[in-house]
């Protein structure tokens, strides 16, 4: 395996996905809603009498008041995760470099 074979495959896959998405969203009539919402719609179609179970009201939950707030929170979730990942990658990178410098 060449040095960057994996990375090249990953980038190629992302480019292909993005290309398909661009083509589809320009030509087709798709909503790009959530798959969970689509499942919910399917339930009400298959079994119109179904009454959703009442939420457990004693557990306080927060409903994002708008799509903007929701995307903010999702973004925050991603940022926290990315910060942790790259902190440790950077930490190990620096540590390895230092131990190599010591050896030589």
């Amino acid at each position: 395996m060449k040095k960057y074979t994996l990375e090249i495959i990953l980038i190629a896959a992302i480019v292909i996905m993005a290309g398909v998405f661009l083509y589809q969203s320009n030509t087709g009539d798709y909503e790009y809603g959530g798959a969970d919402g689509a499942a919910e719609d399917a339930v009400s179609e298959l079994n119109p009498d179904y009454e959703p179970v009442e939420a457990l009201t004693w557990i306080p939950t927060f409903e994002p008041p708008s799509g903007e707030i929701e995307s903010l929170l999702f973004c925050l979730q991603g940022v926290i995760g990315a910060a942790i990942i790259f902190f440790f990658f950077g930490y190990y990178y620096g540590k390895n470099k230092e131990s190599k410098a010591k050896k030589s």
Partner: peptide
């Protein structure tokens, strides 16, 4: 453990469009 957990955090925050015309 933190890195593995962080990957779940990051990847499950990314709602991506799929060929079926919906996102997951």
């Amino acid at each position: 453990l933190a890195v593995a957990g962080a990957f779940i955090f990051v990847l499950s925050s990314l709602k991506l469009p799929s060929v079926s015309g919906s996102c997951s």
